[in-house]
Design a protein around this nucleic acid. Structure first.
Lengths: 220, 220
DNA sequence: CGGCATCCTCTTTGATACTG
DNA sequence: CAGTATCAAAGAGGATGCCG
């Protein structure tokens, strides 16, 4: 392991998580929870398989990742974050906030996985009517699904399809993210091809947590 | 520039600041303010000089760093952070918080610069008596000096010596940091060799911002 | 001196093929 | 499924030279 050799907390942190791909592996584990080697590879397009194996071992040695052999019927190795690894969430959150302007436009060559929106949406969206019964929205981007649940004032986002969604939004990642993160309003994304099925009034229930202000999705 | 090619804010952020040394250069610029190439090299022991030049150009191209030719009598190039670059402060803050446990013990080979404590101390220390007149503490670690000013409820920390310090703390980095960040109490660091000159009651004025609790330095 | 550029070596990363 | 093995390319580290 190459180290900066500096008696400084930032440098020490980067000694552990500063290598290429490392924080993206943590992103996957934070988003997906315990998962298999192949799930990780799926969510990390571009990584070389040997590098993923090396990084996982390093993360294990640093105490950020735990490897368990799941019992039958799963019968496979599961990787998950330790408590220490989970504490990297605020680091990823700040990196994501800082990087948000960089995803305003999508490059043609950019890969996309719907679950990458999971953490940012969870941070950004709030439930404006905490008293109401839980509501679910399913996002469809290509074949991939993501489920947002609004309940008790907060929202939770997880990979996969919803059982009984109140609303379904289908379209490209820039349209879906653009609407929910507040780059575009409802009319704009609809005009650009976003498809909306179900009870669109659910959108009024979602608010955006912006630095200093909170607004409903359809406002602005 | 190598890119992850992922439509994800975290990955995009790492495309810009994920390269080796990049965030440490930002640390230096945040801590020191506008400074010269040689000042940066001084604060980044271990960096190859050509790599510093390359990184500075990349940071300039990404719009995080500005290069200005200072007028006489300085007559040298000054590097400073743009607004966009300064917004990386929360990222460094979370990285530093996460990395804090890793500097509990100092490795023999670890380099040290007093100004590396500047950002963490500024985040961590608060002024418990906002009404009182400003107080200053000078830290001496080897030949290096750092000045802490407590005033109006907050503390500010900057590199360099104090004009008229109320208190001077001298000793190794682990002792100075250990006392101020709350790893050790006053008796312990004194027993281990920390030297204290001046009005040590100033320490009672400083509180630590810990997750959930605030305590005076000499407590606990 | 300050601010690099060059040259060289060594390490890390990437791509691909293969295996228990 | 969960990797290892191999090889080529890119990046980092170190020494030194150059130029205003």
């Amino acid at each position: 392991m190459r180290t900066y050799g500096q008696y400084c907390a930032v440098a020490k942190a980067l000694d552990v998580v500063g290598d290429r791909w490392t924080l993206l592996i943590v992103r996957e584990l934070l988003t997906l929870g315990p998962c298999r080697y192949t799930d990780l590879r799926e969510g990390l397009p571009g990584i070389a398989t040997n590098l993923l194996a090396i990084r996982l071992r390093e993360l294990e040695d640093s105490g950020l990742v735990r490897r368990e052999d799941a019992p039958p019927p799963v019968a496979t190795t599961l990787f998950s974050l330790t408590e220490r690894g989970q504490r990297l969430l605020p680091v990823l959150q700040e990196l994501g906030r800082w990087g948000a302007p960089l995803v305003a436009k999508r490059a043609r060559s950019d890969q996309f996985r719907a679950h990458w929106m999971s953490l940012p949406l969870g941070w950004h969206l709030i439930d404006l009517t905490p008293e109401a019964a839980p509501a679910t929205i399913e996002l469809r981007v290509g074949e991939q699904r993501l489920t947002i649940t609004a309940s008790g004032g907060a929202t939770r986002t997880r990979p996969g399809r919803a059982a009984n969604p109140d609303l379904v939004l289908s379209g490209g990642p820039d349209l879906v993210a653009g609407l929910l993160l507040g780059w575009f309003d409802l009319e704009t994304v609809r005009a650009r091809g976003l498809r909306i099925h179900g009870d669109s009034s659910v959108l009024n229930r979602l608010g955006r947590r912006t630095p200093g202000s909170i607004g409903a999705i359809t406002q602005e």
